[in-house]
Design a protein around this nucleic acid. Structure first.
Lengths: 116, 116
DNA sequence: CCGGTCGTACGATAACCTTCGTAGTACGTC
DNA sequence: GACGTACTACGAAGGTTATCGTACGACCGG
């Protein structure tokens, strides 16, 4: 018996509700940019715990929520895990080239800072 | 006679000091995104007062400073005016395609929201 | 049913960000 | 030199954000 409300469905913005400013803000945090890079590298959907961040679990939950509510990722429950995937189709349709530009920029900057 | 310190030169980050997160954060504010769009549309350098924002002058100064310190724009004094221009060469070299993707995304979103 | 794992909710805190108003500095013009 | 314009500096209020700790709910395996 659950406590009457068990919201097993997560709220996502529709495609036409996604705002450029919100996406840019979501990606402007180092933690979240790291998450998006790993999700893009993984290609398919991965669990929250798959991505290790140097923060506590509650903070991780917070960042995933910001990414979901800004429309960058889609989250679905699968058993005890929560799977995360980039909304590439929506983002590419709304902002062509933006996600790829950010991802390659992040990669080249990471390489630049590593070998510095 | 100035009061001993007259910083007529403004501090700008060097090209290799520009961080992707900082640029994304600078562009994630509606006011600043508006400024960048107008600067890009103008092409050449324009004065601060050329761009009208629905905020006071001190707030405008603040936003221009954020844009400058993140490396998005370059500011130079010219007499009583301060000229502003996008650092397109630096941004394109560091993050190829990013600025254009953001600008076209902002334009298409503005069109989408206008005709809604 | 019990335990373990995964993730959430809530409260708290400290830092940050946006905005403003006021006062002040630099520059060109008269 | 005096005045007006353009922008800045500083301080403050208000809201938002990032982070944590603790306690809790959902699910799977024995």
């Amino acid at each position: 018996m659950t406590t009457a409300t068990s919201p097993r469905e997560l709220a996502h913005p529709a495609r036409d509700e996604i705002r450029l400013e919100g996406v840019l803000h979501a990606l402007s945090d180092p933690m979240r940019l790291c998450v998006v890079r790993e999700l893009a590298a993984a290609g398919s959907e991965v669990a929250c715990s798959y991505i290790e961040l140097p923060v506590t679990k509650s903070t991780t939950t917070h960042h995933f929520r910001v990414l979901r509510e800004s429309g960058v990722i889609r989250q679905t429950y699968r058993g005890t895990a929560k799977m995360n995937g980039i909304r590439r189709a929506d983002l590419d349709a709304l902002f062509p080239g933006l996600l790829d530009a950010v991802l390659s920029a992040a990669e080249s900057q990471a390489a630049r800072l590593d070998t510095a």
